[in-house]
């Protein structure tokens, strides 16, 4: 039995016909839309490489059935920058060497963007490590990742202050 769903992916509305309800959001993004920035690491919700934002919240796309998310608004790593202009979190990861092999990086960045909008960590490195614990980096670039998130958070705080001043 075929199921029709519609999703908004990086701002564009897309219609899909699913001939199999087993398709996860991760596989839909990678195999149907060829948005391969979202990575398949463990495929079991343990590594965070597949992190995307669904309706503004970070989740593991490997543990989400596409069919169950009919109508959802999805943001992936491909949708965070503006043309050639990097998202501030992307720029901060480059500035602070927040990666080595890069495989976990899209998930780390999506998770950091989600975390900053949750406003749960602020500029406390201990909180950042805690709030980012769902993203593993087997190269061990954690020190750079925390620095990058701190820097991006500081930049966001500054621009918020400017806006309210």
């Amino acid at each position: 039995m075929n199921h029709s769903i519609s999703l908004t992916v990086n701002g564009a509305r897309r219609e899909f016909v699913l001939d199999d309800p087993r398709v996860t959001l991760l596989d839909l993004l990678r195999e149907r839309l060829h948005l391969t920035g979202t990575k398949k690491g463990c495929d079991r919700g343990q590594c965070g490489a597949c992190t995307i934002l669904v309706d503004g919240k970070r989740i593991n796309s490997c543990l989400a059935l596409a069919i169950s998310h009919d109508g959802a608004d999805i943001l992936t790593i491909e949708g965070v920058g503006r043309g050639d202009q990097l998202h501030p979190v992307q720029a901060a990861f480059i500035a602070h060497d927040g990666f080595q092999c890069g495989f976990c990086t899209p998930g780390q960045i999506m998770s950091a963007i989600g975390m900053m909008s949750e406003a749960q960590a602020g500029n406390d490195p201990e909180r950042i490590r805690e709030c980012m614990s769902g993203n593993l980096c087997r190269c061990g670039a954690y020190a750079g990742i925390v620095d990058a998130v701190l820097d991006a958070q500081a930049g966001m705080d500054e621009s918020n202050q400017r806006r309210s001043a």
Binding site: I59, N60, C131, M132, G134
Partner: peptide, 9 residues
């Protein structure tokens, strides 16, 4: 419990 991603879902 779990991770931030899992708690969101």
């Amino acid at each position: 419990g779990a991770s931030a991603q899992l708690r969101n879902a």
